[in-house]
Amino acid sequence: MRTSRQPRSRLPAAAVVAAVTALSAAPAAAADAHYDRAFMLAADARCGLFAPPVRAALTSATLQARGAQLRGGATAVQAAETARRARARAASTPCDHPELRMVAGRVDQAFAGWLGLRRMEFPGLSAAWSVDRARFEAPRWRLSQTGVTGASSVVVGRVWGQTGLTVAVSFVGKPRPTSARIVMRDPGRFPNPWIGSRPTLAPEAQRRAVWAGATAPADKALFAGGRRGGEIWAFSERAVAELAALDPREAFAVEFVFRDGSVARAAFEVGDLAAAEAFLTLGAV
Rank of each mutant, 00 (worst) to 15 (best):
M1K: 05
S4Q: 13
P7T: 02
A13V: 05
A13H: 04
A14W: 03
T21C: 03
T21Q: 11
T21R: 10
A26Y: 01
L41I: 04
A43N: 04
C47R: 02
G48S: 11
L49S: 03
F50L: 09
F50A: 09
R55K: 10
A57Y: 00
L58A: 04
S60Q: 02
R66M: 03
G67K: 00
R71D: 15
R71H: 05
G72R: 09
V77Q: 09
V77M: 01
A80S: 14
A80C: 04
A80Q: 13
T82C: 03
R84Q: 15
R87C: 00
A88Q: 14
S92A: 15
P94N: 11
C95Y: 02
D96E: 14
L100I: 10
M102G: 00
G105Q: 02
Q109K: 09
G113P: 12
L115Q: 13
G116I: 06
R118N: 08
F122G: 09
A128F: 11
W129D: 10
W129Y: 08
S130A: 15
S130T: 12
V131N: 10
E137L: 13
A138L: 14
W141P: 14
T146P: 00
T149N: 05
G150M: 06
S152H: 05
S152W: 06
S152M: 08
V154A: 13
V154P: 07
V156P: 04
Q162R: 13
G164I: 05
V167Q: 02
F171Q: 11
V172N: 09
K174I: 00
K174M: 15
P175I: 02
R176K: 07
S179N: 12
I182H: 06
W194Y: 12
P199F: 08
P199R: 07
L201H: 00
L201Y: 03
A202D: 12
R207Q: 15
R208W: 00
V210W: 01
A212H: 07
A212F: 01
A212G: 15
A214V: 06
A216F: 15
P217Y: 11
A218K: 12
K220G: 00
K220W: 02
K220P: 01
L222I: 09
G225R: 08
R228A: 04
G229M: 01
G229I: 02
E231H: 13
I232W: 01
W233G: 09
W233A: 11
E237P: 01
A241Y: 03
L246Q: 12
D247C: 09
P248N: 05
V254P: 00
V263T: 08
R265M: 11
A267D: 15
A267L: 14
F268T: 07
G271T: 11
A276D: 06
E277A: 08
A278R: 10
L280C: 11
